[in-house]
Computed example of a mutant assay.
Amino acid sequence: MDTAKPSQDLVRSLTDEHVLRALTRHRRLTRAELAVEIGISKPTAGESVRRLTERGLVTDTGERTPGGRGRGRVGSYYALAPSVGVALAVTIAPSGIVAEGLNVYGDGVASVARPGEPSRVGETLIEAVAGVRDAVDQPIRLAVVSAADPVDRVTGRLVQLPDSPFLVGALDPVEILSAYVDGPVVVDNDVNWAAAAEGQDDFAYLFLGEGLGAAVVDDGGIRRGSSGLTGEIAHLLTVGPQGRAIPFIELFGELGLRRPGTTAIDAERLIASPTAVREMIGTAVGGVIAAVIALADPGEIVVGGSWGPSLISEIVAATARMPRQVPVRATTRTGSPASAGVRAEALRRLRASLTARG
């Protein structure tokens, strides 16, 4: 049996990691409180605080415990240093760009929103991110970005596909943000981030809005494919008018439900459509779901987007006629699920980077 003891360096590293995690949970602690919280001796906690202070990760807040007159020695409160930095969470959509700075506790410390202008999306992104940088006055350690377009998983660039609404436009967020971020820039499409916000391990997320998309989550991981384009469902063949086979995206053109001059779907007009049109769209979505089930075998189908949940009755009725049955429901998420997914990942990565530095 191997009875070798861990090295002192490993023990110190693990202790420092526990101290950083404890300060992330509690924001400020004395060395005595750290010892109790982690289950280590006071001298060991004190040594860890000393090491982390020297590295600029922990700081003395200047606050003291009462102490004296039978209350024991005065204790100093320690907290994570401002130099641990913030994470940047960015959403890029046709309506505009929102950049938010998050500290290691998950607090939003700065937020800048700019209206969408397709002709200058790069400049707008720079303005939003520079605004956050100037407001937080702390290093931006990393960035997580959601974009309302397909994303190349290798480069992080936005990809234009045939007949895609291409809602944002040509953009390379990694290149743009590298001037503002010390560490990595992670980019993915909004559908994948919305799926991540659902917090499930085995399902498919169908995004039905101005654009069309899907995300497949298997064993808790999003399947992106070799180039990052898994879930691009616009060209799947499905059932159209008079029972004809038709690419999914073309259905909305035939029904007159596209916005003028683009393939973007007019959600308001679609929702207000007559019952027969809504049922036809529900049947088409059912055909897409049948393909997703055949290829991905998800445990559940979750329908999101600006108009998908409004047609959930028609969609469920269509899927009830399919030979393979999988539960189908509308998302319960409100607000911007993609933004929630981006924020959660930005916070997770910032905390991981902190403990790695410890």
Rank of each mutant, 00 (worst) to 15 (best):
V326A: 00
L236R: 15
G101H: 13
L10S: 14
L14E: 14
Q242S: 10
T263I: 12
G169W: 10
R133L: 03
S178I: 01
R28S: 08
G221Y: 09
G67W: 02
L29W: 11
A340Y: 05
D9R: 14
V19S: 03
V90T: 10
H26I: 00
R244K: 09
E123C: 07
I265Q: 09
T230G: 06
I301T: 11
R50A: 04
D182S: 05
V181S: 02
D107R: 10
S95I: 08
A215C: 08
A352K: 05
R224F: 11
D16F: 07
A267Y: 11
I293N: 13
R329L: 00
G67R: 05
E314R: 01
I176P: 02
G243F: 07
G308D: 11
S7T: 14
L229E: 06
E198R: 07
P139L: 07
Q325F: 03
R329Q: 00
P82G: 01
S310N: 12
T238Q: 07
D188Y: 06
G213C: 01
Q138A: 03
L212P: 00
S41A: 13
L229R: 11
A79G: 06
V326R: 00
D163R: 10
I312D: 06
R329G: 00
L57P: 01
S13P: 07
A32N: 14
V132R: 00
G62Q: 14
D16K: 06
G108D: 02
R258N: 14
I222K: 00
I40R: 11
T332C: 00
M1D: 14
E117V: 15
V181C: 01
S48K: 05
G108F: 07
G220C: 02
R278P: 15
L29F: 11
E210T: 05
A35L: 12
R153S: 15
R258A: 12
T230L: 09
E210F: 03
A194R: 05
V159M: 12
R258V: 12
V187D: 03
T283N: 15
